[in-house]
């Protein structure tokens, strides 16, 4: 089935956005809630926009990664950029900058940039996909180990608690500042990933054929590193680690497209935006003692989905 997913997803976002603005521990009634306009403009709207931006970046990065690795189980986390960004943010928290609104995302962006530079230094020259994947895994596990070290050597209980809380991504208490920081980087990243689309299509026939069609492996690799780096790096910098979106979303969207990797990136960005918007609205509404962290909620949703995917693959229906 090939439908036109972009108008459908835009319509769903147009439907979900107003609901998300009203949803929360306190449901907004613009007519009667005191300070409704202020709450909307300063709290709900930036948070909802940030959810859209984060989801769009993660969805597009996931679609591009699956196209690049020709594997439906690939996830943007494989490149080690999200763990690198997380390590940067953890460093900021470790040094006691928990209350500094700018320093945490800036440290995270430096961490993402460091992971990108390391990847490019190891694998950038040859452009081989296998080497690149291994390098990404190593960067991810190095960043993960350093993050664990930072937690175990945390200078005080407050730092440890804030690190652990931050690692489980969330959009709580985010403001316009985060929106302005993430939006341009994520949009630039998505544009780079879309530019990689034709080369990803050629990669459908394997690396050798792609090269015979004029694809430059190193140019493609740079587009991917920068595109995934900007999207995932910026999202992680403002929201912490939000897993599984990049894995789930391309799967949900693929049957609505003709399955060409280039045709999956735009719809995955929109579907990712919709998923994170809905999930973030849901965690606000759930009647729990404290708000469920978005990263945890999406992992709770994502892990069973991943298992279902594996079962489906085993029975050869994927």
């Amino acid at each position: 089935m090939t439908t036109r997913p972009i108008p459908l997803l835009l319509a769903l976002i147009a439907l979900a956005l107003p609901l998300s603005l009203l949803a929360g521990r306190v449901w907004l009634d613009p007519a009667s809630t005191p300070n409704a306009a202020l709450i909307l403009a300063e709290l709900r709207l930036p948070r909802s926009l940030l959810a859209l931006i984060a989801g769009a970046g993660l969805g597009a990065a996931g679609a591009a990664m699956q196209g690049y690795l020709r594997n439906p189980l690939a996830d943007p986390g494989l490149f080690g950029i999200a763990p690198g960004a997380a390590l940067g943010a953890v460093a900021a928290l470790w040094f006691g900058y928990a209350n500094s609104a700018w320093l945490i995302p800036l440290f995270a962006l430096v961490g993402a940039g460091g992971a990108m530079a390391l990847l490019a230094a190891i694998a950038g020259r040859t452009g081989g996909i296998a080497l690149f994947t291994l390098a990404g895994l190593m960067v991810a596990s190095l960043a993960g180990a350093l993050t664990a070290l930072a937690i175990s050597l945390a200078p005080n209980a407050f730092a440890m608690e804030s690190i652990v809380a931050w690692l489980n991504g969330a959009l709580t208490d985010r403001s316009w500042r985060e929106v302005w920081l993430a939006a341009p980087l994520v949009l630039a990243g998505i544009a780079l990933l879309r530019a990689a689309g034709p080369a990803l299509d050629a990669l459908t026939l394997g690396e050798t054929v792609a090269r015979s069609l004029g694809v430059s492996p190193s140019r493609l690799l740079w587009l991917l590193v920068l595109g995934v780096g900007l999207t995932v790096g910026a999202v992680t910098a403002v929201a912490g680690i939000i897993g599984f979106v990049g894995l789930i979303v391309p799967h949900l969207v693929r049957p609505l497209t003709d399955r060409r990797p280039s045709r999956l990136i735009g719809p995955s960005a929109l579907a990712g935006a919709l998923l994170v918007l809905v999930a973030d609205s849901a965690v606000r509404v759930l009647p729990l003692m404290t708000e469920l962290r978005l990263g945890i909620a999406l992992s709770l949703l994502g892990a069973p989905f991943f298992l279902w995917l594996l079962v489906k693959m085993r029975s050869g229906r994927l």
């Binding site: 459908t204 399955r259 990797p261």
Partner: peptide, 8 residues
């Protein structure tokens, strides 16, 4: 070797 990664 024929290799077609996606069902396009």
């Amino acid at each position: 070797r024929a290799e077609i990664a996606w069902d396009v």
